[in-house]
């Protein structure tokens, strides 16, 4: 091991490599990839006020159908304006779909969550979480990390103070931060660390699905590597599924099992990430690949 120079990418499971992640990843039995978690059927979303605009509404998302299994990463690849973030927001209940269905396959029952009422939406928080792109805007600067992370535990899980603190510190440890981070304010952390905190917040409720909306686009290459490693590793240990939204083909190829390419609000191509990024069949995917 000592004679091998660093930076030579051999097999990545290269134990003791100076730049290999220091957390050993236990090989987790792969989850049954056929067990469905979320289905998006013919989803359409339009922005703008109905009837008031002089221009006919151009839908941001137009008849998109997607399937996501437990423990799987589905990549959504597209350029700006392709509607990829809007799909994420619709799943999170942050925008109202104009048509289509979103079905969540819970442990007990399948459920249409397209227009879930607020109370139901709040309970869904245990199952579906989010990590946004901007590590600076996604944490309230005037609240400590501990306050931000424990809030949903008090509200949705009715945790006591002690339970919540223990859970928060578990989450922080999971993302590679020490528990004393809970007492600090977001301003004390770098962009990469904030993104870890955002991931920890998504994890406190132990969700089945995390919508990752360009989680590394605002980060530098070397910081991105840390965050991507973390996300992959968490999936392997916790079995969480990701809807991974990105404009970066390399990132999608690296993290996703399957991917869908979006353009103008519709899916132009779908398949395994490997096939999409090596043998694309749609000309648009090919231009993305060669760009």
């Amino acid at each position: 091991m000592t004679e091998r120079p660093p930076y030579v990418p051999e097999t990545a499971a290269d134990e003791g490599h100076p730049y290999a992640p220091d957390t050993a990843v236990a090989a987790r039995p792969p989850t049954d990839a056929t067990e469905p978690l979320l289905e998006v059927q013919e989803l359409s979303v339009s922005y703008g006020r109905r009837g008031r605009s002089r221009h006919p509404l151009r839908p941001a998302v137009d008849g998109v159908t997607l399937r996501l299994s437990r423990g799987e990463t589905l990549g959504l690849l597209g350029e700006s304006g392709s509607g990829k973030s809007t799909i994420g927001k619709a799943i999170l209940g942050l925008v109202r779909p104009a048509a289509g269905r979103i079905v969540f396959h819970g442990a007990v029952q399948d459920e249409d969550i397209t227009h879930a009422p607020p109370a139901r939406r709040r309970r869904l928080a245990r199952h579906i979480q989010v990590v946004f792109q901007d590590p600076y805007g996604s944490l309230n600067p005037s609240r400590t990390i501990g306050q931000t992370l424990s809030e949903p535990l008090h509200i949705t899980r009715r945790h006591t103070r002690g339970q919540a603190a223990a859970r928060v510190s578990d989450s922080l440890n999971l993302v590679g931060l020490t528990a004393d981070a809970a007492e600090r304010y977001p301003a004390a952390f770098s962009g990469g660390q904030r993104q870890r905190i955002a991931i920890a917040r998504a994890l406190v409720l132990e969700p089945d699905l995390i919508v990752c909306d360009e989680p590394t686009s605002a980060l530098d290459l070397s910081v991105q590597a840390h965050v991507l490693n973390l996300l992959v590793e968490l999936q392997q240990t916790l079995g969480v599924a990701y809807l991974f939204i990105s404009h970066d083909l390399d990132v999608i190829r690296h993290v996703a099992h399957r991917a869908a390419v979006l353009r103008g609000g519709t899916v132009v191509e779908e398949g395994t990430a490997d096939r999409l990024t090596t043998r694309p069949s749609h000309p648009y995917t090919r231009t993305l690949l060669t760009a």
Binding site: P6, Y7, P9, T11, A12, A13, H17, Y19, A20, P21, V25, L221, S222, Q224, A225, H226, L228, N229, V232, E233, D248, L249, D250, V251, R253, H254, V255, A256, A273, D274
Partner: peptide, 19 residues
């Protein structure tokens, strides 16, 4: 290190060699 941390060249879902 910077070149090695790019996701484009690593095997999918294997850890990247982050600095």
């Amino acid at each position: 290190g910077l070149l090695a941390s790019a996701p484009g060249r690593a095997a999918p879902r294997e850890p990247l060699r982050a600095i």
